[in-house]
Design a protein around this nucleic acid. Structure first.
Length: 780
DNA sequence: TTAGGGTTAG
């Protein structure tokens, strides 16, 4: 028999493990196992779970106690379990309950359930431990089933099982079951305590019966800060700020959690300024900040993009030595990312421990590991917000390499990165990962994947995700509507918009951008006018520059250039550069020099250093052979040091991205590409293709212009694509600028000559080339 | 009881 000396076990679990491993053959009795539990840190976890009942609750809890045990405990618990089996100690219900509780605390509900089923003489504690586990970790429905089974077995629930089952009802928003439990409590004359009262208030708040919850709240004899906070938050959730503030003011100013509740609630409801005012009041008259306050304050600074406030909070954290805390660090990272300071965020991120194996070995709690995951997620979305898509994808790959769990949040961000970078292969990998790991397609993830497929050129896949996603909200519908518009499927976009209205979902401002741009692509002028009116009159949405630009684009595309001018002036939007740019673009296509000049004049007043303006204007000059004017524009550009954005195209072949710029010879296969392109152009000329020299800004010899045009980046990418894929494969090319008219014609002829489908995403939209035609109808 | 990461346009 081995007796553990408490004084020789200062490090608890470590000694326990050392103690247990070398002694597999020694028979340990149930009382020894109890000793082990009593003398180890495991007892602390056990004690914490019942602290609500074994101790009277303090009026203000000292702070959040980690709700989960160490992940590293799981192996120890399993070891303890197998030792208990060998020792024949599982006949002792107390031992079984202890081990069961440890499994639940270690988040191992599978093993807990298995052990539970093997316990023959379960008492109320056995049932309660598992119900509480399901209440906290889910699935909450299983907690409800267990509660019913417990009663069928004739076991009377105690306070803990009642509050746990109420928590299950609350997380399921199941008012009917909640009322049932409430009724049972009343019928059986259970003497209520503050925890049970709070559980009942909570279920009614969660099920939107806030006034009824308020009546219970006012009638109970004892309230703690939890009771007040549940009610304050309840009123905030239904938008009753006055009532929430009234309750808050009835409280003494010393309760930090109540300050946190009211500040968080105001922020969540979009009252950032009020939240900031309260935070300032808290500094002056309230209690000291706790971790939640700091975290909230950072989130507030982030949402208001107040970098200076964020910096000051960071300074304060350094002084109170809280800057090392993972929760706080993840908030700091997010604040810096949202304020556009990716480098500062990266500095904080690098200070965090990121090695999962080390984290587990050093007994970091699962909450802290979660904080670590959040910081990765923040860093990834920060990269995306700042346009560093490839960096975001690299971080994601590192995250998987580190063995960290990737959740819905991170997947959503990374899908968005793939969408914006146009990396179909990586996006498909994400989709496969979601299917493999069984993640649900919620509206966030669904919308991001729809957008990814749409922006990577696969409209059909976007459609199928739309149908697979659970729950259709306005963003999901809008993603699909915008996807159709992006691909020139205007009528389908309008159809979806109408379907959304029939489903009773109100469009938002983005939905209108989607449907208006769809109308533009399909030439639906009347419909667009009606939607534009409806947006203002029926939905009270004030049109923004995006909506105005869609309308000018629509009128311009339809050739109604005078009407477009009239629209700009009658809506008082002549100060918006985007609308003039849309009009200028229309003038180029319809070769209207007069209005084009007017538009470029207005645009140059507003944005004298915009390269796009000079390019568009000079293209109009080139189109009408006014070379001198084109030259003037060129010298003006040089004089004003306006730089044209470098055109870049890229194509993915066998998981590799190949990027090309105009006239680029840096690719290892450059010689073959140019040779192939020469031959291809020769072949296209045989079937009627002639180089369109208008888009070139320079007044040079025709032959030389041809050479310049031949080497545009999209042509190089397409030639490379055809050379390196099978004859049936669709070629997908991305470009950072709009496709020029010559390249557009070139691709149309290529699709005809090669009998190939080519999909090109330019800065504005998608072009699907097939049988010599383009889905944009030659307007882009 | 309160915190912290996510989607659609431009």
């Amino acid at each position: 028999m081995v007796v553990l000396n408490r004084s020789s076990n200062p490090t608890g679990l470590l000694n326990l493990r050392r103690f247990l491993i070398p002694l597999p053959v020694i028979v340990i009795s149930a009382s020894t196992i109890r000793d082990i539990i009593e003398s180890s840190e495991l007892k602390t976890h056990l004690f914490q779970s019942y602290s609500g009942y074994s101790l009277s609750p303090p009026s203000e809890p000292p702070g959040k106690i980690s709700s989960h045990a160490n992940l590293a405990d799981n192996s120890r618990v399993q070891l303890l379990h197998s030792q208990a089996i060998k020792a024949g100690s599982l006949g002792c219900l107390q031992v079984c309950n202890h081990i069961l509780n440890l499994y639940v605390k270690g988040l191992n509900l599978g093993s807990a359930r298995k052990l539970f089923d093997e316990i023959p003489n379960r008492d109320v504690r056995t049932w309660t431990i598992l119900i509480a586990g399901f209440a906290r970790l889910g699935p909450a429905g299983a907690g409800l089933v267990l509660f019913t089974e417990m009663q069928t077995e004739g076991i009377r629930p105690n306070h803990f099982s009642l509050s746990s089952v109420l928590k299950c009802c609350s997380s399921l928003n199941n008012l009917r079951c909640g009322k049932g439990v409430h009724g049972w409590i009343l019928r059986h004359g259970v003497v209520l305590d503050v925890v049970l009262d709070n559980s009942m208030i909570d279920i009614y708040v969660k099920c939107a019966k806030v006034d009824y919850a308020g009546r219970i709240f006012e009638s109970v004899t004892t309230r703690d800060t939890v009771s007040w906070n549940i009610m304050i938050d309840g009123y905030l959730q239904i938008g009753n700020t006055e009532k929430a503030m009234e309750l808050f003011r009835r409280l003494p100013l010393k309760y930090v959690s109540s300050w946190n509740t009211i500040i968080v609630g105001q922020m969540r409801n979009g009252y950032g300024r009020k939240a900031l005012e309260l935070l300032c009041q808290m500094v002056e008259i309230g209690p000291d900040f706790n971790k939640v306050t700091y975290s909230t304050a950072l989130a507030l600074a982030a949402s208001l993009a107040m970098l200076e406030v964020g910096r000051q909070i960071h300074g304060k954290l350094l002084r109170v030595v809280l800057d090392y805390d993972e929760f706080i660090m993840s908030s700091l990272i997010d604040m810096y990312c949202k304020c556009g300071k990716l480098d500062k965020a990266a500095l904080v991120f690098e200070k965090m421990p990121h090695d999962l194996a080390n984290m587990q070995n050093s007994k970091i709690s699962s909450d802290r590991i979660m904080a670590n995951v959040i910081s990765w997620s923040s860093m990834i979305s920060g990269c995306i917000q700042n346009g560093s898509y490839e960096e975001a994808i690299k971080l994601f790959q590192m995250m998987i390499h580190e063995g960290l769990d990737v959740d819905q949040f991170t997947l959503t961000s990374i899908a968005s990165a793939c969408a914006n970078a146009g990396i179909l292969y990586q996006g498909q990998q994400i989709h496969a990962y979601i299917e493999k790991t069984g993640h649900k397609l919620d509206v966030f993830l669904g919308s991001a994947i729809i957008d990814m497929y749409a922006k990577c050129g696969n409209l059909d896949d976007a459609h199928s995700i739309f149908f697979q996603t659970n729950g259709h909200n306005v963003v999901l519908w809008t993603s699909m509507i915008s996807a159709c518009s992006l691909h020139g499927q205007g009528r389908e976009a309008v159809h979806l918009f109408e379907q959304m209205l029939k489903e009773g979902i109100s469009p938002n401002e983005v939905s209108f951008v989607g449907v208006l741009s769809g109308c533009s692509h399909a030439g639906l002028v009347e419909e667009a006018n009606a939607y534009f009116r409806s947006m203002k009159e029926d939905y009270g949405i004030v049109p923004r520059v995006e909506h105005f630009t869609c309308m000018v684009d629509l009128l311009g595309r339809a050739g109604l250039l005078d009407e477009a001018m009239e629209f700009i002036y009658s809506n008082n939007i002549s100060h918006m550069t985007a609308v003039w740019r849309a009009l200028l673009s229309a003038c180029r296509i319809h070769k209207n020099v007069q209005i084009g000049n007017w538009a470029s004049e207005q645009l140059s007043k507003l944005e004298p250093f915009d390269a796009g303006l000079y390019v568009l204007s000079s293209n109009i000059c080139s189109a009408t052979h006014r070379w001198e004017e084109a030259a003037e524009i060129r010298s003006l550009m040089e004089e004003r040091r306006v730089k044209k954005k470098l055109g870049q195209s890229w194509i993915q072949i066998k998981n590799q991205i190949h990027t090309f710029t105009a006239g680029d010879r840096s690719h290892p296969q450059a010689a073959e590409i140019y040779c192939y392109l020469d031959k291809l152009i020769g072949r296209l000329k045989e079937i009627g293709y002639s180089t369109d020299t208008k888009p070139v800004m320079h007044d040079v010899e025709e032959e030389q212009k041809e050479v310049l045009l031949a080497f545009h980046s999209e042509k190089l990418a397409i030639a490379y694509g055809i050379m390196n894929t099978s004859c049936r494969a669709t070629i997908r090319v991305m470009k950072n600028l709009r496709v020029c008219t010559d390249c557009h014609t070139f691709i149309k002829y290529t699709s005809l000559a090669m009998d190939k489908e080519l999909v090109v995403r330019d800065a504005h939209r998608y072009h699907h080339f097939k049988h010599g035609q383009c889905s944009c109808g030659d307007y882009w």
